[in-house]
Write a protein that binds this DNA or RNA. Sequence first.
DNA 1: AATGAATGAGGGTTCATTCAT
DNA 2: GATGAATGAACCCTCATTCAT
Lengths: 183, 183, 183, 183
Amino acid sequence: MTRPMRKDAAQRRDALRKAAATEFAERGIEVPLDAIADRAGVGRATLYRNFADRDELVLAVFAGLVDELGERMRQKTAPDAFFDFVHELSELLLRNVALSAALRHAQSRLALVKLRQKIIAAGTSALSLSQAAGTVRADLEPGDIRILAALLGAGLETADPSEREAISRRTRALVLDGLRARS
Amino acid sequence: MTRPMRKDAAQRRDALRKAAATEFAERGIEVPLDAIADRAGVGRATLYRNFADRDELVLAVFAGLVDELGERMRQKTAPDAFFDFVHELSELLLRNVALSAALRHAQSRLALVKLRQKIIAAGTSALSLSQAAGTVRADLEPGDIRILAALLGAGLETADPSEREAISRRTRALVLDGLRARS
Amino acid sequence: MTRPMRKDAAQRRDALRKAAATEFAERGIEVPLDAIADRAGVGRATLYRNFADRDELVLAVFAGLVDELGERMRQKTAPDAFFDFVHELSELLLRNVALSAALRHAQSRLALVKLRQKIIAAGTSALSLSQAAGTVRADLEPGDIRILAALLGAGLETADPSEREAISRRTRALVLDGLRARS
Amino acid sequence: MTRPMRKDAAQRRDALRKAAATEFAERGIEVPLDAIADRAGVGRATLYRNFADRDELVLAVFAGLVDELGERMRQKTAPDAFFDFVHELSELLLRNVALSAALRHAQSRLALVKLRQKIIAAGTSALSLSQAAGTVRADLEPGDIRILAALLGAGLETADPSEREAISRRTRALVLDGLRARS
DNA sequence: AATGAATGAGGGTTCATTCAT
DNA sequence: GATGAATGAACCCTCATTCAT
C-alpha cells in the first residue's frame, strides 16, 4: 500500500533521468552530480536515494535507448539486418555522444557492464541472421559488437558538434567497407 | 651556445617525462600532476617550470614516439606501406594506451593538436604510396588518418591490460578488412 | 515564502561575516579566505556557498554600515549636515580600517563598485543641503565624495592601532577646512 | 683593491633598480621578485645579494627621487615654498604611483620608515619658511607631512591611468585650501 | 521522504627563498 | 660572484557525500 505517494517519486526520478541526459550530452558523463540535481530541481540526497552512484544514473539514461534498439532489431528479417544494426548503432551514438564514454568505462565500472551486455544483446540476432544469409563474414562473434560500438563512437564526444556528423559518416565508411581497394 | 649546462636539470626533466609516461599509462592523462611530480621525486613547481601545463607534458611524452613512427614510414617504398603504417600505429597505441586519450582531446586542447598533426604527417607518405600502387582505396584522405587512429585505439585504455592485445588484434581485423563477406 | 527556514544556516552566514570583519580588521581584506573560514569554525566550501568570492564577502561586511550611515544622513536638516557626514565617515573608516582598502579596489573589482556608490549615495543629500545653505563650497560634486573617503581613510589601515586616532583627527583637520565655502 | 670588478656589479645593481621601478609602476610594489630579476636579465640570487628583501629594493627605487625633491626644496626662499612642495610631491606621487603603497607600508616595514623620514625631511624647510612668512597655518608640524603625502597619493595606484591626472588635481584642490593660513 | 547546507579531501597554481653548478 | 633550477608552503577552488532540519 505504498502506492499513492509513488506518483511524486516517479516524477522526481524521471526529472533526474532527463536532467542527467541533458547534462551528459552537454558536458559528458563526468559532469558534477550537483549540476544534475539542480537541473532536475531536486535535492542532492534525492539523487542519491534514486541512484546509488553516477554509474547507475548513466545506466538509467542509456539502458532504455539500447533496449529499444534491440527490440527493433529483433524484428528484422532481411539478410542485411546487421548493416541496419550498424547504422542504427552509429546514429544512436551520434545522438548520444556520452554513451561512448559510458561504454568505454564499462571495463572498470560494474554498473556499466550491463550497458555493454545490452549492446551486444541488441545486435546478436541481426548478426546471426546476416551471417546465415551470407552477407556478413562468418568469423564475427557477438562479442565483437562491443568493439564495433567503440569504433562507431570513437572521437565523437570530444569533437565539435558541427563536425560530428561528418566524423560519424566517415567512421562508418571506414568500418563498413574496409580499406582495401576492391579488385 | 644557449646554455648547454644543465646535466642535473636535464636529468630531472627526463625523470618527469618518464614518471609522466608511467602515470599516464597506469591512470590516464588526467592523473593528478602531483602524482607525476612525486613519482619523479621532484617538487611540484619543478614540474611547472619544465612543462607549462598538463598538455605540454603529454605532448613531450608522446611526440617523440609519433615522430619516430613517421620517420620509419617515410622510408618505406613497398605498395602496402600504408598497411604497415596501420599495423605500426596500432602497435603504438597498444603500447601507449594513454595516447588515445591524448588524441581524443586534440579537439579542444591546443597543445594536443600537434600530436594529431604528427600522426597525420606520419602516415601521409605511406598513404600516397599505397594509393598510387592501387592497394588502398583512392578516396582516403590524409585527414582520415586521425579517424583511423581513433579507431585503432578505441577501447584500449579502459580495457584490462590482459585483454588489450586481443582487442587490438580484433579491432585491426575489423578495420582492415571490413565487415562484408567477400564474394 | 522563499525558504525562510534556515536558522543554523543563517547563524553560520553570520559567523562568517563576523569572522571576516575581524580578519579584515586585523590583517586586511586580502587575508586568506581559509583564515576566515577557520575563525568562523566552518569548512571552506561553506564560505564559498555563502559568498561567491572575496569581494562579495567584503561587500557583505561593509555595505550595511555604509547604508546605515546614509540612512542617518538622509534625516539631517541642519546647514552643516555635510560636515557631520565627513565626521561620521571619518569615524566609520577609523573603526573599520579595511574599508579603505575595499574602496581603493573599487576601481578594478566589480563587486566593490557598489560600496563606492553607497558611500556617494550616503553623503549626497547632506552635500546638497549644505551647499544650498552656503556652508560648503559650491564646486563640490557627489563624485568628490569618493575622493574624500579615500582621503579620510588614508594611512589608517597600516598605521599602528594606537596611532590611528591621532592620524584620523589630523587628517580631518587638514581636509575639513578645504571644504568650507569662502566668504 | 676590490675595484676592477665593481663595474659589472654596479651595472647589475642598476639594472635591477630600473627593472624594479618599471615593474612597481606597472604592477605595484607586491610584484613577484622573479619578474624583476627576469626583467633585469639577472638571476634571483643576484637580486638577493644586492637587496636583502623587497623593501630594500623599494627604498632603492624611491629614495633618490625623494632626496632630489628635498634638495630642490631646500633651495627655495619664496613665502609659498610649501605650496610648491605640495605641488611637487603631488606630481611625484602621480608619476610614481607605487610610492604611495610604499609609504602606506612604512608603518610595519622597517626599511620603508626611511622613505617616510625622507619625505618629511624634504618638506620641513619649506614648511618652516612658509610658516615664518605667514602663508601656511602655524599649527602644521613636520610630522603632518607624511599625512599630507598619504592624502596626495590616495586612490592613485588603483585608479585607471587615464583617471589619475583628474583625481590628483581634485585631491590637491581639496587639500591645498586646508593648508592656507586664515586672514 | 526531501531538502540543500556543510564538510573535507584533493587538485591546480604561484612565489619567496635556497642551493648546486 | 652569478646563475637559474628546485623547493615547499600557501592559497584558491571544486565536488562527492553526509546530515541536520
